[in-house]
Each structure stands twice: as C-alpha cells, then as structure tokens.
C-alpha cells in the first residue's frame, strides 16, 4: 500500500509488527493485556473513498460481526482464536495469537520433502491433517458458522515442524451465521478450489477432508452432496481460476 497506516489509539506503531495487509484489514503482531501475551491485532483502517458515515457503519458492523462469531464459537466449544479485546468505533480487534504455521506453509514444506510419498505410509501424515481440517470445518458448520474465505492460508496447524498438531481455523472477517446447505457447500468449494490450485500434488487427498467432514454433524452428508451441484455450476462464487 502506498499510504502509511497510522494505527488508532491507544496503539503506537513502535509496538506493532505488520504481519499481513489485505484489502480489508491489516494484521499486526503485538502483546495484549500482559507484556507476555502474544496477540494478533486486526485493524480495519478507514476507507477514504467511502462517505464517512458509511465507512464508520461498515467498520463497526464488521468488527462486531467477526467478534461475535468468534465468541459464539468459543461458547459452543469450537476452537478458534479467542477474542481478547475490541473497539468497533476505532476499528480494531485483538485476538489470541495462534502459534504454528498455516496449513499452506506446512503442506508446502512437507510436499517439497516428501512429494512422491503422498500415496505411501508417510502420506498418512497428510491424510491425518486433511481429516483434522475436515473435522474443524464440520465443527464450525455444526454451530451455524460459515467461514466465507476458507483457504489453506486461513487454517493453522499448531506445530513448528511436520504436520502433527491441532488445527485451528483463523480469519473470520467474512464469516456469517448460516445453516443453509448452499452456504456450507460453497464454503467447502472455495477451500477445494484453493487447495487444488495451491497444492496440486496433494489434490487427490482433499477427499479425506470431505470424508471426515461428512461425519462431523447432522446434515453434513447433505452438504457434501450439495457440493457436487456447486461444482457443476462452476463460478458463481468461487474466486480462483
């Protein structure tokens, strides 16, 4: 971005380390509540092209929507980053820092080292990871949450090496509350397309995500069936080519 971003109060730029910069929000690493609590600070900067009142209204609604979805997941016992603090007037959200790597990163590393073993016994590790992803997404859908932007960059695995470790879905900036089969199927479709285009070697293993997902909650099997329909339709909601 060419405009330098000044964080809203009470934050000072010197206390923040920029991690990612999306169209919607900037994510910084910092501490929150104690000097030893690592935190992901998500800031939605004002958009100058919008009428000020519309911008404030949207920022407020989006910070709140994300916070509410995360708290709902917490209440339902679904593991997601915890909400530590929020200020929807100023446009920021402080979330539990999930240590580890994205599934994208972890899988890339593993495939580089073991690419040819995907079908073998060592490939069981990948299969295990896929299954845990399927289970995590099923848990979200099972409590009425649709993520809205599932990619392998939005799922973390809590380990520094290899593919073992808990799977935690992150970045709920586009999440909505929905129990519609269509919405859930599209969630899976987006992930499938993302998976296939970023990890073509492991394409065949995506089925494991769906297999475990299908047993994840009542109605999951129907969603996997619906996914077929969504695939036939092709692009109506996918964002990848």
């Amino acid at each position: 971005m060419s405009t330098i971003h000044i964080p809203p109060s009470p934050f000072n730029p010197s206390d923040l380390t920029l991690i990612t910069q999306g169209a919607e929000a900037l994510v910084y690493k910092t501490t929150f509540l104690t000097p030893s609590t690592p935190t992901a600070l998500k800031i939605r900067p004002p958009k100058t092209y919008r009428h000020a009142s519309l911008d404030a209204r949207l920022t407020r609604a989006r910070i709140l929507a994300e916070a509410r979805v995360l708290v709902r997941c917490a209440r339902e016992g679904v593991r997601v980053p915890a909400v530590l603090g929020a200020d929807w007037e100023k446009g920021w959200l402080a979330l539990e820092w999930i240590a580890g790597r994205t599934v994208r990163h972890a899988l890339d590393g593993w495939l580089k080292a073991h690419g040819d073993d995907v079908g073998s016994s060592e490939g069981l590790e990948v299969k295990g990871l896929m299954g845990r992803m399927g289970k995590a997404i099923a848990q979200l859908h099972g409590v009425g949450v649709v993520h809205g932007d599932l990619t392998t960059s939005n799922v973390m695995v809590e380990s520094e090496e290899g593919l073992e470790g808990d799977v935690v879905v992150i970045d709920f900036g586009l999440a909505v509350m929905s129990v519609q089969e269509e919405d859930r199927a599209v969630d899976l479709y987006v992930l499938e397309r993302a998976f296939v285009s970023t990890h073509p070697q492991a394409e065949g293993l995506f089925g494991e995500v769906l297999r475990v997902y299908a047993d994840g909650y009542k109605g999951a099997k129907g969603v996997v069936k619906k996914l077929d329909e969504v695939r036939q339709r092709g692009r109506k909601k996918s964002m990848l080519g």
Partner: peptide, 17 residues
C-alpha cells in the same frame, strides 16, 4: 454513495487477490 462503495469494495478485493 452506497452502491458505488459496494462496487469499489469488491473491485479492491479482486485486486488484492
């Protein structure tokens, strides 16, 4: 103001992507 903000937003998302 509202509909154009919507269009600019989805355009920005595509650009970022």
């Amino acid at each position: 103001e509202t509909i154009y903000a919507m269009l600019v937003e989805i355009t920005e998302r595509a650009m970022a992507h």
